[in-house]
């Protein structure tokens, strides 16, 4: 059993495609399981569970195929980004998420300059005057275009509404 686990671990580390396939197989199985509680066929209609079950089965089948082909292809591809680059991407995603949270509470006008400035700062654009200038200017331009010119709503935030 432990041998098996070690082998699986090795495979996971070696082949990202295999781990994605395994995850998809698990997801497919969960969907099939959930769909069993849906109403079934009624008269000529195949019912609510028909499509999810067929599609998940297809997903599982395709994932198995992907596993087979990646085992057959012995070449391990190197396509991961370098360490520092990964960090930047994760930072960017996290900041965007924080921006989303800030929008809920502070609204567009207050949250946007903070987000823009933080992003520029983290990505090595560090002339303070320029960072402040650009983040305020862009916030203003987008506000003018969206809220005033195009009448598109912008989040106002729970604190200010």
């Amino acid at each position: 059993m432990t041998w098996f686990l070690i082998e699986v671990k090795k495979l996971l580390a070696k082949q990202i495609d295999i781990s994605i396939s395994l995850a998809l197989i698990v997801i497919g199985a969960i969907i099939i399981h959930t769909s069993r509680s849906f109403p079934g066929a009624q008269g000529a209609d195949v019912g609510a569970s028909f499509f999810p079950v067929i599609l998940s089965s297809l997903l599982i089948f395709l994932s198995l195929l992907l596993i087979l082909t990646s085992i057959k292809n012995k070449s391990v591809e190197t396509r991961t980004a370098g360490k520092s680059e990964w960090k930047k991407v994760v930072f960017g995603m996290a900041l965007t998420f924080i921006y989303f949270i800030l929008l809920i509470y502070l609204g567009y006008v207050a949250a946007t300059p903070i987000f823009l400035a933080a992003m520029m700062w983290i990505f090595n654009y560090r002339r303070i005057v320029q960072v402040v200038f650009w983040s305020l200017l862009i916030t203003g331009i987008i506000y003018a275009c969206f809220a005033m010119l195009l009448q598109v709503p912008l989040p106002s935030g729970v604190f200010f509404s």
Binding site: G92, T96, Y99, F100, L103, I104, Y108, T112, F115, L116, M119, M120, F123, N124, Y125, W134, I138, I142, F146, V152, P153, L154, P155
Partner: peptide, 25 residues
């Protein structure tokens, strides 16, 4: 245009744009 400005602006537009469709966070 430096990417350090362009990329944050694109992300901001993604956020603001997807909000604007239905006023829904």
């Amino acid at each position: 245009i430096p990417k350090a400005i362009l990329t944050p602006v694109i992300l901001m537009l993604c956020v603001v744009g997807s909000y604007a469709i239905n006023n829904n966070l």
